[in-house]
Design a protein around this nucleic acid. Structure first.
Length: 499
RNA sequence: GACCUGGUAGCUCAGUGGUAGAGCAUCUGACUUUUAAUCAGAGGGUCGCGGGUUCGAUCCCCGCCCGGGUCACCA
């Protein structure tokens, strides 16, 4: 018999013995007076003498994370998932049945405890147990108490084990929860209405990305999982909802990396009467406020870098940044004008070893140069603005420069955290942009945007001047929790099926 | 998709072309304020899967499966 089988059998035998004592193996409910975390918070600062005079009593419960046995005196470590508290179990303080049940407990079991709080000789806050209540069995051996669970594959596949034994895992997801609620509160306070738009869409629009496909049987209709909520949210602005936001999942059928999970969470919002400059200001206000609420500061450590999320953020024009970086790299003056000329831009890219495809215009090439040369270096928050029109089919052109749109992306820690622009609201121009995308699609670009006639019709009814932005929640949480991989901030990241 | 790297006991990890190791966990015994409790003893392995080389493979070679990283693509 393997060690695993032996331990499972032993635990099952203990459960049988508990049942033979007439104790319900899986009771329905247990009423706690306090959680372990509440007890720790309330009594952590109290001295031995203070506890002795106060004699605080409690009923609490949790999972047993350690058992230290001395025969007739024993210590349990009880966890409610956030905090740990020691329980002192001595034979002469418990009813005989409770002590018999205690002797059948295993590391990982769930128990309820009644007793009074005191401090041991080693000054540890402890519950002196007067009653023990069996709540649920742990039939499988848990990972070790000292090293915890470090195998990343097991941590992702069996997140419950990670959460049960690694306090740091719990902390990450608490920060994540606070980030989402902070954004809800801050957006709502600014007059934004939270809405939900379709995640199953007949046309996967709003971003340049490859979608997942699915099928509705009763309607016999092919559908896509959305790559972005953008086009639906702007339809709402057409309908007069001047400030809307949505926090939800997007799905993109593309590669997986430390910064990409096939499903990821975006907060996307639209504000009528605003342009992209207004959104830079708003972003500079929003992110530090979220950081303060989630982790108590806007100064963060990310890998080897100390980053400040406090305003103001650096601002960098995309073509200026790309031409400056190319000049540096090639040791020759490359101008912004060079990057606006298709042939000259292609020559520069070629010398930099950057892939240029036949369908790529000057705008795509300039963006490619920027991404290859500049992105990684943008550690402190930086707005990269004025994107080529060619790569921005839903953004409004600058009044004096039709090759450039009013758009920015916010980079922090070397990756993109937000993307925003003044929305293109001219239906004729939007139709031309879609048609250009169709040309790209015809020449093999699977990420090019499809024509969306209903969206154009909505614009024909009139979209007021509007700016919109998407903020990557997973990436923001990575920054705030110093996690190098997006999988560390997603409870159940997508992994291959395991036989 | 390409390249690099890993998979050994429930967990964390050593290790070797010749019967597979440690700590924790488990089991037995001692112990009524310990805390990685301690002490004495015991059990526990298809060394990811499948081929090949070899007298003999966990180790060398090939293929596959599942992770991690870098790149490509993207947010």
């Amino acid at each position: 018999m393997s060690s695993q089988e032996e331990q499972v059998q032993q635990r099952a035998a203990n459960l049988d013995a508990i049942i033979r004592h007439g104790v319900a193996p899986y009771p329905s409910r247990f009423e706690r007076q306090h959680t372990v975390s509440e007890l720790v918070a309330t009594h952590q600062e109290k001295s031995h003498d203070a506890l002795e005079s106060e004699q605080p009593r409690t009923v609490t419960g949790g999972r047993i994370l350690a058992i230290r046995s001395f025969g007739k005196a024993n210590f349990l470590v009880l966890s409610d998932g956030r905090s740990k508290l020691q329980v002192y179990v001595r034979q002469d303080a418990l009813p005989p049945l409770d002590f018999q049940i205690f002797e059948l407990l295993d590391f990982g079991d769930w128990v309820g405890v009644e007793g009074r709080l005191f401090r041991t000789r080693t000054n540890e806050l402890t519950i002196w147990a007067g009653r023990l209540h069996f709540l649920a069995k742990c039939l499988l051996p848990l990972p070790e108490k000292w090293h915890g669970l470090t195998d990343v594959e097991t941590r992702y596949r069996q997140r419950y084990l990670d959460l049960a034994v690694n306090p740091e895992a719990r902390r990450v997801f608490e920060v994540r929860s606070r980030v989402v609620s902070a954004i809800r509160e801050l957006m709502t306070a600014r007059g934004f209405l939270e809405v939900e738009t379709p995640m199953m869409q007949p046309i996967a629009g709003g971003a340049l990305a490859r979608p997942f496909r699915t099928h509705h049987n009763a309607l016999d209709m092919d559908l896509y999982l959305r790559v972005a909520p953008e086009l639906y949210l702007k339809r709402l602005v057409v309908g007069g909802m001047e400030r809307v936001f949505e926090i939800n999942r997007n799905f993109r059928n593309e590669g997986i990396s430390t910064q990409h999970n096939p499903e990821f969470t975006m907060m996307e919002f639209y504000q009528a009467y605003a342009d992209y400059r207004d959104l830079m200001t708003m972003t500079e206000e929003l992110l530090p406020a979220v950081a303060h609420r989630a982790i108590g500061t806007d100064q963060i450590t990310f890998g080897d870098h100390q980053l400040s999320l406090a305003a103001p953020y650096a601002r960098l024009s995309l073509r200026q940044a790309a031409s400056a970086a190319a000049s540096d790299r090639l040791n020759q003056a490359i101008t912004e004008a060079d990057l606006r000329d298709r042939d000259r831009a292609a020559a520069v890219a070629g010398r930099l070893g950057i892939d240029v495809r036949p369908g790529h215009g000057a705008g795509k090439i300039a963006t490619g140069i920027f991404e290859a040369l500049c992105e990684d270096g943008l550690r402190q928050p930086t707005f990269v603005y004025d994107f080529p029109t060619e790569v921005s089919p839903l953004s409004k052109q600058k009044a004096d420069d039709p090759d450039t749109v009013e758009r920015f992306e916010l980079y922090i820690g070397g990756f993109e955290v937000a993307n925003a622009f003044s929305e293109l609201n001219d239906p004729l121009e939007q139709r031309r942009r879609f048609e250009a995308q169709l040309d790209d699609r015809a020449s093999g670009d699977l990420e090019a945007h499809e024509m969306d006639e209903d969206y154009i019709r909505a614009l024909e009814y009139g979209l007021p001047p509007t700016a919109g932005e998407g903020v990557g929640i997973d990436r923001l949480v990575m920054l705030l929790t110093n996690c190098p991989s997006i999988r560390d901030v997603i409870l159940f990241p997508l992994l291959r099926k395991r036989d």
